[in-house]
Amino acid sequence: MTQSTKKRIQVQVDRVLADEGDAVLTELGLTPTAAITMFYKRLVAEGGLPFSPKLTQREKDELAIQKITTTWPVTELKTPELIKKWAEKDD
């Protein structure tokens, strides 16, 4: 039997995303190592990403909103008086 050599892969992921991903993996009974191994096996078997890297409809909508609102004026509400004046201006 041949002995397999291992290679360490280190990546940096946003902490919140990593925590959320870990929670999903725990529910699935998987470790991050098992999930990454599965990903690599599918990557090799399919000769490419095992999913379609595209935006969801929600992500597309969020980008559209960001694009539309980039030129909107921003009002800084630094004091209670400014907040009150801003809140009452629509009355």
Rank of each mutant, 00 (worst) to 15 (best):
M1S: 02
M1C: 03
M1D: 08
T2R: 11
Q3C: 07
Q3A: 13
Q3W: 06
S4I: 11
S4T: 15
S4R: 14
K6L: 14
R8P: 07
R8Y: 08
R8I: 13
I9G: 00
Q10T: 15
Q10C: 09
Q10D: 12
V11A: 15
Q12W: 10
Q12H: 11
V13R: 02
R15C: 05
V16P: 00
V16A: 11
V16K: 13
V16L: 14
A18V: 06
A18M: 05
D19Y: 05
D22Y: 09
A23L: 14
V24D: 06
L25T: 01
T26A: 14
E27Q: 12
L28S: 04
G29F: 10
G29E: 05
G29P: 03
L30W: 10
L30D: 02
L30F: 08
P32D: 07
T33R: 13
A34V: 11
A35M: 05
A35K: 02
A35S: 01
I36Q: 04
I36K: 03
I36E: 02
T37L: 05
F39I: 06
F39M: 12
Y40T: 12
K41M: 03
V44Q: 06
V44S: 04
A45D: 13
A45K: 13
E46S: 06
E46K: 05
E46G: 07
G47T: 01
G48F: 02
G48H: 06
L49M: 11
P50S: 01
F51W: 12
F51D: 08
P53H: 01
P53K: 03
P53A: 07
T56Q: 06
Q57Y: 09
Q57E: 15
Q57A: 15
R58L: 11
L63M: 14
L63K: 04
A64I: 11
A64S: 07
I65W: 01
K67A: 15
K67I: 09
T70S: 13
T70D: 10
T71R: 10
W72F: 15
W72K: 10
P73M: 06
T75E: 12
E76D: 08
E76I: 04
L77A: 06
K78Y: 02
K78E: 04
K78L: 14
T79A: 00
P80R: 13
E81T: 14
I83D: 00
K84C: 04
K85S: 10
W86E: 06
W86G: 01
E88N: 12
K89S: 09
K89V: 09
